[in-house]
Design a protein around this nucleic acid. Structure first.
Length: 460
RNA sequence: GGCGCUAUCGUCUAAUGGUUAGGACGGCACCCUUUCAAGGUGCAAACCCGGGUUCGACUCCCGGUAGCGUCACCA
């Protein structure tokens, strides 16, 4: 009954078809991941197709960056096509001319209109359609009062239109390049795409594509429209609340696996509500029945949680490599390495590492002691801490612990207050990794220098 | 405005006619604890509204409302 059932069971072939007009954003990444998972779940093919038929909007290097970004997320493609190259070979023009010959399209020489400027006036049938021109743009001759429909495999329902509400649409521009409507149909056909997965915004133009498939005599693929990711403030996702470009997010300290895991769960869910997936695990369990039908909101707290989770999963060596781009030049790499275990479950983004642990691998010149408690008590704490640490010859965690806890006992200090004074003196902040561990890494000499500096500051 | 899609805690979602409506993030409380985290335990928090259908509706149907998308020689 449904198209899906009627479609002969062949290899699943999907494609991701971005325009090289900017960097890959979070929504595009999601579409690509879904398309890849759909294909790879049953050992199908995933195709990357660059839709660069609008010469005006091209951005230099965007195609290369797009590929680079997909790779960093582990999204690899089996085949690769570029529409502008195919266009130069006449692939689309040939089909457009065929439509003209068959009476399903016509040449038009009107200047491009923009419905928005016209306030959505209802010019549904183009005035050139009966002029029999033989040059210009080629437009589709939309029939009147015809029903077109298809079954959406994401929405899981049949969607219908009356062609009377569809305007004659440009298929081939006067520069010889196809519009999306022609290119997508022709390419999906010749590339044997079995499943079309695309953004929700394409749903309203689907009747055009349906008609083109029909007039060209092509069997149509199974089509599904994904939800849109919404901004927390409503509407389409925008940059206002932080970056939505994958590249920018990575620079912000997000891990690719966290971004990916987060994004696949925005609009898709398994029956058991499992949350953590590697790409391969996702492919394994992928089922298009899990697609959501309503638009999800981009929720940064959840992303941060995923990122913290994936940071915690890294071992110290892996984390060191990941952290390198975020560490200031000249930082003592041994100290960085040593403090990593104590920062791992304290940061949600890689960018937080230097903020949290910078005092460990900076010099005393760069660290300004902070005094947050009562000055008299502060001096007592720090001078006693200094005295006991000065006696430590074999500087290691155990001996530092012993010296300090001995001092606390001896003077009946309050543990929390004592360590807080120590902490702010050594680090300049109230939030740090465990302070004794930090002190051990910082070293005897540097530690004592900072304590003296704090004491001097307190006396002023 | 026309056309179309959608509607469960604040957010992401599970449920496929009968459940105390489940989980996750976030929030709150407690435990752990030298700060902050992480971890553990617990709590609060939802079926858009109105009609049907049915012995029984979050689940099915209709209407409303709201949100979103789209209406270019851009994709």
């Amino acid at each position: 009954m449904t198209e899906q059932e009627n479609k002969k069971i062949g290899k699943i072939r999907t494609r991701f078809a971005p325009s090289p007009t900017g960097s890959l954003h979070i929504g595009g990444l999601r579409t690509a991941a879904y398309a890849l998972a759909l294909a790879k779940h049953s050992n199908g093919d995933f195709i990357l197709r660059i839709e660069d038929t609008d010469q005006k909007r091209l951005i230099k290097g965007a195609t290369e960056k797009l590929q680079e970004t997909l790779k960093t997320f582990g999204l690899f493609w089996d085949e690769y096509y570029v529409q502008s190259e195919r266009s130069k070979k006449g692939v689309y023009q040939k089909e457009a001319e065929r439509l003209v010959r068959d009476g399903h399209a016509f040449y038009c020489q009107c200047t491009p209109k923009n419905a928005k400027k016209q306030g959505y006036s209802e010019i549904l049938r183009d005035t050139c359609r009966d002029k029999n021109l033989n040059s210009g743009a080629i437009k589709l001759k939309i029939p009147d009062n015809e029903k077109v429909s298809y079954t959406d495999f994401v929405l899981e329902k049949e969607i219908n239109w009356d062609t009377s509400l569809v305007s004659d649409t440009t298929l081939l521009k006067s520069d010889g390049f196809p519009t999306y409507h022609l290119a997508v149909v022709v390419d999906d056909h010749y590339m044997n795409i079995s499943h079309v997965l695309r953004g929700h915004d394409w749903l309203p133009s689907t009747p055009i594509h349906l008609l083109v498939y029909k007039f060209l005599g092509f069997e149509r693929p199974i089509i599904g429209h994904l939800t849109d990711i919404l901004d927390p403030d409503g509407g389409k996702l925008s940059k206002r609340k932080g970056s939505v470009s994958c590249e920018a997010m990575i620079k912000e300290g997000y891990l690719p696996e966290a971004i990916l895991n987060f994004v696949i769960l925005l609009g898709w869910a398994p029956k058991d509500n499992r949350e953590i997936y590697t790409l391969n695990e996702f492919i394994e369990v992928f089922d298009s029945k899990g697609f959501q039908k309503s638009n999800p909101v981009f929720n940064r707290e959840k992303l941060d949680w995923f990122n913290g989770y994936y940071i915690r999963q890294k071992n110290d060596e892996e984390l060191l490599e990941l952290l390198k781009p975020f560490i200031p030049k000249g930082a003592n790499i041994d100290k960085v390495k040593a403090i990593i275990p104590y920062t791992k479950d304290r940061i949600k983004k890689l960018t937080e590492f230097p903020t949290l642990a910078g005092f460990v691998f900076s010099t005393s010149k760069e660290v300004e002691p902070e005094i947050v408690s009562d000055p008299n008590q502060y001096v007592t704490h720090i001078s006693n801490a200094t005295q006991s640490l000065e006696k430590v010859n074999n500087w290691n965690l155990a001996s530092v612990n012993e010296a300090l806890s001995g001092t606390i006992q001896e003077h009946s200090f309050k543990t929390g207050g004592f360590y807080m004074d120590l902490r702010t003196t050594i680090s300049g902040t109230t939030i740090t990794p465990p302070i004794n561990e930090s002190i051990e890494i910082i070293g005897r000499e540097e530690t004592l220098t900072r304590l003296k500096k704090g004491l001097e500051k307190a006396k002023k």
